[in-house]
Amino acid sequence: MSDFPSHLAERFSTSERVFTVEFPSIDGGNLAAVKSRVDDLLPWFDAANATDSPAAHAHASNVAIAIALQNFGLEPILQVVCRDKNRIAIQSDIMGAALHGVRNIELLTGDDVTAGDEPEARRVFDVDSAQAIKIAATLRGGRYLSGRKFSDAPDLFIGAVENAAAPPLEYRAERVTKKVNAGAKFFQLQICFHGDRLENFAQTVNASHPTLPLLPTIVLVKGAKPLKFMHEKVAGIDIPTEVIARVEQASDPKEAAYQLARAQAEHALSLPGVRGLHFTDFCHDDSLVRLMRDLGVTPRPTGSH
């Protein structure tokens, strides 16, 4: 057994719901900036994503944030994208984080450089997400991709991401199998505003992988404007016009946006294979805690894990 078993893996082995959250990007300041956010999230969440330059914007690195989260007691999920680093650097990052006790590693393609504020950057994509998953599994088995062996391999808990709402829709569930065969043990799903697509996806995946935990993402926004922004500017997110209109035309758009997220959360939790939820919070107020309470979650005393 590893000295640092994945708490997340243990949580999935219970019958309880599992909640994870996107850790906010950190730029300036020092570790106190990380700590104050950890303190807010710790009572509610099982783990937090240490993101890897999300939307192709530079921030404090995934590995540095993951180590800080680990030290502050909020279990990190180290996200590793294929956009910025080649296979050598990806392996070094995973091993470096693992040295500090980071066990949950999630491999994904990554937004293109053109999604960010430095579109002039060279894109790397030396490996793709499925290949990166298998490389992480290779590390878990005590070898680098080259075959070079090392001892005391970290007991990595490897995750993946899928977009249940983007074309080719029929293939999305099939591709989960490829990532599972490569070594993925859990999936976080991208933001999805098509409940029917999420439902079809969850049913198909659950039929072939009954024990595979799925965590759909719920996004909290303050009104119709961010919904329009996501629909128009974020590739892979399509929001039906009537959904945006319902929020926009409500007497209280902020409340309508909250109720939309709440309904999505409850629907997602009713689907097969869905073991919990992942949250992205663009409200930065008490909405996230309100949603957790509305979902029947009680805060745990901090410092328990």
Binding site: L108, D112, P168, Y171, R175, K178, G236
Partner: peptide, 28 residues
């Protein structure tokens, strides 16, 4: 544009076109 050999990324547009090159259908 991302030279993905194991299936599409999550950025495929609603019309089935590429995240990076909106005029190009996603190869996957």
């Amino acid at each position: 544009p991302k030279t993905l050999r194991n299936g599409p990324c999550g950025g495929v547009r609603e019309d089935g076109h590429c995240e990076v090159k909106p005029e190009m259908p996603c190869i996957w």
